[in-house]
């Protein structure tokens, strides 16, 4: 699995699409595709599956009472060639709202875990990638 992070509107998805020549139907925004959804698009050798805006999916799953930590770990295990894109959201003032604080903390920890297990981590700033792992 490869992880691509960076601030909002830094060109992460554009960069990933270009780099891996990703087909539109292989991009899952704010969602982890199910086994059925993946079978439907029928990936061939070399096709890259992309999950974008992972941070938004984490927010949604926390709100729904899900277990994003386990769900993403299990997804990565089943899809070791996926590219995961997420905003970095922890670089602001501590939010007043308790849910926002929990969301920020859990997202940060999930990204640390993903990064630790990723074969590559890139950080995109102004559209420019920096390989940090």
């Amino acid at each position: 699995m490869k992880l691509v992070i960076g601030g909002y509107a830094q060109g992460k998805l554009e960069y990933v699409k270009k780099k891996y020549n990703v087909k539109e139907e292989f991009i899952f925004d704010c969602a982890l595709p199910t086994k059925e959804e993946i079978e439907k698009i029928n990936p061939e050798e070399g096709d890259v599956l992309v999950v974008s805006s992972l941070h938004k999916w984490i927010r949604k799953r926390i709100k729904e009472g899900g277990r994003p930590e386990e769900e993403i770990a299990s997804f990565v295990k089943k899809n070791p060639n996926a590219v995961i894109i997420s905003d970095e959201i922890g670089n602001g003032i501590v939010p007043m709202d308790p849910f926002e604080r929990v969301y920020r903390e859990r997202t940060g920890r999930i990204l640390c875990d993903l990064a630790a297990n990723a074969e590559e981590v890139e950080r995109v700033t102004c559209g420019i990638p920096q390989k940090i792992k």
Partner: peptide
């Protein structure tokens, strides 16, 4: 230096 929950 780092953000919240960055592993710093």
């Amino acid at each position: 230096y780092g953000g919240s929950a960055s592993g710093k």
